[in-house]
């Protein structure tokens, strides 16, 4: 079970604003989902190597070559805010 404070901490980590109603609903829903998930604990998995990928093959590597040219105009076409080629966000103070 996760309480409201934990849900809020997760929402901060995931950068998703939640209102009180959403948080309350999530306490129940995530609780049920985690109950479902807890079923995993019925199986002993000691000594089992985690499987990250269904096909256990090696990484391919690409040659060190420039294949991409400047696409800025095309790629910034639908961007929310740009100026002088930069993407703009509210001022960040470091």
């Amino acid at each position: 079970m996760l309480n409201a404070a934990q849900i809020e901490a997760l929402s901060r980590l995931a950068r998703i604003q939640l209102d009180a109603r959403e948080t309350a609903a999530l306490v129940t829903q995530l609780g049920e989902i985690l109950n479902l998930v807890e079923r995993m604990n019925a199986v002993a998995t000691d000594g089992v190597e985690p499987l990250a990928h269904p096909l256990e093959i090696d990484s391919r590597r690409r040659a060190d070559e420039i294949t991409e040219q400047d696409q800025r105009a095309n790629l910034q076409h639908g961007a929310p805010a740009t100026e002088a080629g930069y993407y703009l966000v509210p001022r960040v103070i470091e």
Partner: peptide, 19 residues
């Protein structure tokens, strides 16, 4: 971040991101 993502994603997507 938090408002764009809150508005942009629906309830199921948010649930899964949080899980």
């Amino acid at each position: 971040y938090t408002r764009s993502r809150a508005e942009g994603f629906g309830a199921e997507v948010k649930r899964r991101i949080l899980v």
